[in-house]
Design a protein around this nucleic acid. Structure first.
Length: 315
DNA sequence: AACGGGCGCAACCGCATTTAA
DNA sequence: GTTAAATGCGGTTGCGCCCGT
């Protein structure tokens, strides 16, 4: 957590009268959990409570282990541009399958990826001055694609496809990763882009061609982020006013296990020296990283688990 | 210096899926 | 084959910190 949460754990009595602790974990609890995993491995989580080791539910223990205690996590390490690129492309391919996406990112958990993505979505939405979908619109995002003309104002933010729709998903979201740049040019509103069956150009997925080669041919994307014209105009203006910068300096290197030796055990060590020391926020921090993908050669995605050491915090 | 909004992140909840009895 | 428990996953919430005003 960014700030050390005050230790304000709640205790809850369940139906059986057993006490269950909730809220931030204490260092002692972490130690108990680590010791349990050392002895028994990361399984039988519910027996931790049944054995009286911790007043936490099995789910809570598992989550704590997965997100904070397991070794080789890149806690406190900002997503590198490469990781961001991977997330964006895999989200395009798999949809919101965070656990699956996380398997391609050593040291990152599904929670990390999820948080990264939602932050990015919020940032984009704010940038483009469009509302994020409300919870009441939840079902809207599951609605099937139609041939209705796109309505920029009301288009759903997350045309997140189901697993079965992954191909369409790829197509739609692939465009997503290029749409922001395209929006800088123009935004025709042909409705065929809403229909995956009419999007043959978007077939390439992970082996996609460099976007700059296809810009002219790309159909108007149906956006996760409907682009308001006035918003894009502003973007263009900012774009022109600012010029390019290299934001690769944001690569940070931190390999640590912040959960070890923490004073109160309720917070992770925020390692952000790289950011504060030599990498001032640039204007482009406010842009989606994929906005400028067309400027760099696409690289193949890493293979999932184990084959991706280069992605561990470098430098 | 005070304040408020945004951000980042940990952890919870509910549902789905898998496994064991 | 059925049921219950355990586990996994995605969505959401709450809260402290940061930063601009």
């Amino acid at each position: 957590m960014q700030g050390a949460a005050k230790v304000s754990s709640r205790r809850v009595n369940d139906q059986c009268g057993t006490i269950t602790r909730k809220g931030p974990w204490m260092a002692e609890e972490d130690e108990v959990l680590l010791e349990y995993v050392r002895r028994h491995g990361p399984r039988d989580w519910s027996s931790i409570r049944s054995k009286g080791l911790l007043p936490r539910t099995g789910k809570s223990c598992r989550l704590r282990w997965v997100n904070k205690l397991q070794p080789n996590l890149k806690t406190g390490c900002k997503f590198s541009p490469e990781e961001e690129r991977i997330v964006i492309e895999l989200q395009a391919r798999f949809g919101n399958k965070w656990a699956r996406i996380a398997t391609y990112l050593p040291g990152r958990t599904d929670n990390d990826v999820k948080n990264f993505w939602s932050t990015r979505q919020k940032r984009l939405a704010r940038m483009l001055q469009i509302p994020l979908p409300s919870k009441s619109n939840k079902n809207q995002s599951k609605m099937p694609l139609t041939n209705d003309p796109p309505t920029f104002e009301v288009a759903s933010l997350d045309l997140i496809p189901s697993e079965e729709e992954s191909v369409e998903s790829n197509q739609l979201s692939y465009v997503d990763s290029n749409r922001e740049q395209q929006s800088l040019h123009q935004m025709p509103a042909d409705n065929h882009v809403l229909n995956p069956s009419t999007m043959p150009l978007l077939e390439p997925q992970l082996n996609w061609e460099p976007p700059q080669l296809q810009l002219e041919n790309l159909p108007n994307p149906e956006l996760d982020f409907p682009l308001l014209l006035e918003g894009s105009d502003r973007l263009i203006q900012q774009f022109e006013d600012t010029g390019f910068e290299d934001n690769s300096s944001f690569l940070q290197i931190t390999e640590n296990m912040p959960f070890l030796g923490l004073g109160d055990g309720t917070s992770s060590v925020k390692i952000d020296e790289g950011h504060s020391a030599g990498a001032p926020d640039s204007f482009f921090d406010d842009f989606p990283v994929d906005m400028f993908d067309f400027m760099e050669q696409p690289q193949p995605l890493p293979t999932p688990p184990g084959a991706c050491g280069s992605l561990l915090c470098q430098r």
